[in-house]
Design a protein around this nucleic acid. Structure first.
Length: 923
RNA sequence: GCCUAGAUGGCGGAACUGGUAGACGCACUAGACUCAAAAUCUAGCGCCCUCGGGCGUGGGGGUUCGAUUCCCCCUCUGGGCACCA
């Protein structure tokens, strides 16, 4: 009987929906398992074949776990706030809520076509007020807490206020923006506005004036991870610096813990390294250099305090606040010129052309140990935003300092003797013995660093210090389509957060979505809304995309709860995400913010675990295969993208497919009007050879493959297995539909195994033979092992071998086929459900099936043929009973006539039997 | 420059802790069926060679009876960070 996949899919989908097969509840009799996909932003273009890669893989895993008796939480939702919907709203005037709702319907339909086992009763949407009520609530909690470094956890801001009242700022050890010192009296004497400003220095969500990344084209500020190569990640618009009041998330407070607990996670090493890199912890010392003829001093951060005797000059960032006060009159003009020059250079220019530049300030520092005068320079290679914005330059052991010293003819003093170490040892290796360094002479670098810090602290000229590259995350967006801030300002401008009872603060309707101008958010235009509450003014900025996505995995545990973001019962049962699947592009954005929020909630004892995602797998990107045609355009030849469905299997452009298109779809013709005379079928260029190239899949490259088409053509089961069969999940690879044929053949063969020559359903109740059991159980073993390793491509291979084996044995035994149905169920959910019912089972294979266990006894053969090697060369096979011991194998080998001949009377020096499998005779 | 992952037939890729390299699939070739084609089935398919055999996992060296796997050096490719002191 022919496999009618469309009919089967419709029938099975209905059965699943009617019987709520995938709905899951807390069940304390079963162990829990939480399998999660990174939820998508529902964009206008729908799913392409790249999206399902991770979804299908995690679905297989979720289904496998379910069949193994776990209570599996497997859910999906929508990261629904975001820029594209708002940009579209500005252009077309369609409310983002409407666009988003439409896109969600498309996504939902496409996902359902793939047979994914999500519990849709737990669907969430970050733009739903019932959801963002809790996003806002968490932000109010962040606002109401500070980070105590003594206890290494977040604490209520009230405790800090109480401390200020009693002791002022003395004795606190907190994460803060800047150091402050004030007495209890001074605190009490402060106005509410002044106290508010002080507290902003400690809050975990805080508002401050600072230079931020401003994107004029998008009309909003962006966080560091939203900027790639100096332009906005979305749209590629230029980004400039602008001074504005902004909300920030104090992620730096958690830097150490984020770094530490990475070691406990089952993430790929490269993923952990991306985060380590981004956090960028470095340990060293803060050292004070007194400036000659000036009361102020220059503080520098260095990771190599041991090289301090090699410091021959100082370099200060041109933007540093101290610049004017240390510039002498003789040098003022040169300094001003240089500062102007640096300001004229954009970030991109500075990154691209790194030339040696700088200027002498005229001032000098006194070396804290030698007392020598060391000149202070300005140079753009010292960054204002890192460390103290000033360095002690050690040209002997730092490449940049070295280049600078040579350029400006400054002295270089060797302080580390590297001659004891390999020739290619560099300063970065931190190897060698100190020389020319007074009390440090003779010490190895590692010891010298400790000794130098000890001495620096003893002389009170500096302290041990840890620095991070990680910056606090900007959390304000001057956009409409995001969560409103649950913050209001009183007449004095003092910020307070809304109480729980006033949440959610619903995003008001707006007709015109354009920014309000001058950096103000669209909501500023709604003066009634802004001033709705008497005596208060509402915050008009909205939250960035990462707000809603930083905790969504918790909401799935208890999505309809109105009293809490999730009940304690649900949190205690579901705990955390056991298995998280998603793209590696979220390494330093979503994954870092989620971890931070989660640790914060853990500090508040709201979640039971310190980390949200135990195991993480990053699926690779599915690329498209673009087709190009070379076309003469006037003088030059250009390569143009050709829609892939215009190109036949031989890589030739076919005219007939073009003719099939409706007029409005003739985009390809339109863009190439100039180049090709399209309207003459006889035109030889119509049949030109195309050139294929692997690129990112995108609409503009005409290389997108829609999963819907493939599902309609070959069935969801085939599509799922084929996506898995492409190769390892983690790897990026081009999507080439050519290989689908193989998987299609496999599914068909499997199906036909249940039918006789006349097409009637026919299974035999006779007991299975040893050969049949061996074929099946070999497959069970392989699939069980590989699913757990997340190696889905080899699972599919194993099943293909199994089906070929059963076919060869003409096996239609119920016992064998029943087990295979359960085995294949995670991969091919539709066909397995259909066959499960045909075999006379009730319920659903996905709920009532039990994943078959491998019985190794079936795998054993009577005899095994062992290859025998001589000196690792000559080979000869011997047959031994499968149960033979090492000694017996040796005996049989030595008695074998051929081996005796090969040995020619010699006694082997060594007989090697490894794992009972292979023998090597060393003569 | 630094970090990280990788390099295996014409192609995608197997080989999980060192043990018959190339599983499985695609493509290709031949045969069967067919008037013919498609589909299907059967067989072959790393390279060289006449059998026997020799050579083969980016290149070079090493450890081992035995290396795709472990160690050292080099080349190339993908991803990330990038004047972070």
């Amino acid at each position: 009987m022919e496999l009618q996949h469309t009919e089967i899919e419709a029938r099975v989908k209905q059965f699943w929906a009617e019987n709520k097969i995938y709905q899951v509840e807390i069940d304390t009799n079963k162990p829990k398992y939480y399998v999660l996909d990174m939820f998508p932003y529902p964009s206008g273009s729908g799913l392409h074949v790249g999206h399902p890669l991770g979804y299908v893989a995690s679905d297989i895993f979720a289904r496998y776990k379910r069949l193994c008796g776990f209570n599996v939480l497997h859910t999906m939702g929508w990261d629904a706030f975001g820029l594209p919907a708002e940009q579209y709203a500005i252009q077309k005037g369609v409310h983002p809520a409407q666009t988003t709702a439409e896109n969600i319907l498309t996504y939902r339909r496409q996902l359902d076509n793939l047979g994914l086992s999500f519990d849709w009763s737990r669907e969430i949407n970050t733009s739903d007020p019932q959801y963002y009520k809790w996003t806002q609530w968490i932000v109010t909690r962040l606002f109401m807490h500070y980070y105590c470094k003594d206890t290494q956890r977040a604490r209520p801001i009230g405790k800090l206020v109480a401390h200020f009242r009693k002791k002022g700022s003395t004795g606190i050890n907190t994460a803060n923006t800047q150091k402050q010192a004030f007495s209890a009296e001074a605190w009490t004497a402060m106005s509410p506005a002044e106290q508010d400003a002080v507290l902003m220095n400690y809050r975990l969500a805080y508002r401050t004036l600072g230079y931020v990344n401003w994107c004029e084209a998008l009309g909003t500020v962006l966080a560091n991870d939203e900027i790639v190569n100096g332009v906005s990640e979305r749209g590629g618009h230029p980004v400039t610096k602008r001074e504005m009041y902004q909300w920030n998330l104090r992620v730096t407070a958690y830097a150490d813990r984020l770094l530490e607990s990475l070691n406990t996670l089952e993430w790929s090493e490269s993923m952990k390294n991306l985060q380590r890199n981004w956090i960028g912890k470095s340990e060293g010392a803060l050292v004070r250099f007194d400036i000659l003829g000036n009361e102020t001093a220059l503080n520098v951060f260095t990771t190599r305090p041991d090289t301090i005797f090699g410091a021959t000059f100082m370099v200060v960032a041109p933007e540093h606040a101290i610049v004017q006060s240390i510039t002498t009159n003789e040098q003022r003009e040169a300094v001003n010129d240089y500062v102007t020059y640096v300001k004229s250079r954009s970030d991109i220019e500075r990154q691209q052309e790194k030339k040696v530049s700088g200027v002498f300030t005229g001032s000098s520092c006194k070396h804290p140990f030698t007392g020598a005068d060391i000149p202070i320079y300005l140079s753009e290679y010292v960054l204002a935003g890192y460390g103290t914005g000033a360095i002690m330059a050690v040209p002997s052991d730092d490449d940049r300092d070295n280049t600078f010293a040579k350029h400006f003819n400054l002295p270089i003093i060797e302080v580390v003797d590297k001659s004891m170490h390999p020739a290619d040892t560099t300063a970065a290796d931190k190897l060698g013995k100190l020389i020319n360094s007074d009390f440090l002479n003779g010490l190895e670098v590692k010891d010298a660093i400790k000794a130098a810090i000890a001495e620096i602290e003893k002389r009170k000229i500096g302290t041990k210090k840890t620095n991070y590259k990680l910056r606090d995350a900007n959390m304000s967006r001057q956009r409409y389509w995001g969560e409103p801030y649950p913050i209001e300002y009183d007449a004095d401008g003092v910020a307070s957060c809304l109480p729980m009872a006033e949440l959610p603060l619903v995003l008001p309707d707006l007709a015109d979505f354009t920014p309000a101008g001058n950096g103000a958010a669209p909501l500023a235009k709604l003066q009634n809304w802004v001033n709705e509450k008497e005596g208060f003014r509402r915050e008009v900025d909205t939250m960035p995309g990462f707000a809603g996505s930083s905790w969504y995995f918790l909401r799935y545990m208890d999505p309809h709860n109105t009293e809490n973001f999730a009940s304690k019962e649900a949190l205690d049962y579901w705990q955390d995400v056991d298995f998280y699947v998603g793209g590696s592009e979220h390494a330093v954005g979503h994954l870092l913010y989620s971890r931070t929020w989660h640790k914060f909630l853990y500090d508040l004892e709201k979640v039971p675990t310190d980390e949200p995602f135990r195991k993480l797998v990053n699926q690779g990107m599915i690329q498209g295969i673009s087709q190009f045609i070379s076309v003469k355009m006037g003088e030059k030849t250009v390569d143009l993208h050709v829609p892939i469905n215009f190109v036949n299997e031989k890589g030739r452009l076919t005219y007939s497919r073009f003719l099939d298109l409706q007029k409005e779809d003739r985009r390809f013709a339109a863009i190439n009007d100039e180049a090709i005379v399209w309207h003459t079928p006889a035109d030889s260029e119509m049949y030109a050879n195309c050139r294929a190239e692997v690129e990112k899949m995108s609409k503009s490259k005409y290389n997108v493959i829609n999963p819907d088409d493939l599902v309609a053509e070959s069935g969801a089961d085939v599509f799922r297995m084929f996506e898995m069969f492409l190769g390892p999940i983690e790897q990026s690879k081009p999507f080439d539909t050519k290989g689908m044929k193989g998987v299609e053949g496999f599914v068909r063969k499997f199906w036909q195994q249940f039918f006789d020559a006349n097409g009637n359903f026919s299974v035999s109740d006779e007991p299975a033979t040893a050969a049949e059991l061996k074929v099946l159980h070999t497959c069970i073993k392989k699939v069980t092992d590989d699913v757990q390793r997340f190696s889905m491509n080899t699972c599919v291979s194993a099943m293909m071998i199994c089906v070929n084996g059963l076919k060869e044995l003409k096996c239609n035994k119920r016992a064998i086929l029943h087990q295979f149905v359960v085995l294949i169920a995670p991969f091919a959910p539709f066909i397995s459900e259909e066959l499960w019912h045909k075999l006379g089972n009730t319920g659903s294979v996905h709920r009532d099936g039990q994943f078959p266990l491998c019985n190794e006894a079936f795998l054993v053969s009577d005899t095994i043929d062992y290859p025998v090697q001589f000196n690792g060369k000559k080979k000869h096979n011997i047959f031994v009973p499968a149960s033979a011991t090492k000694e017996e194998i040796e005996q049989i080998a030595l008695n074998d006539a051929t081996i005796q001949k090969l040995l020619a009377g010699a006694t082997p020096k060594k007989i090697i039997v490894v794992m009972g499998r292979l023998i090597s005779l060393v003569v």
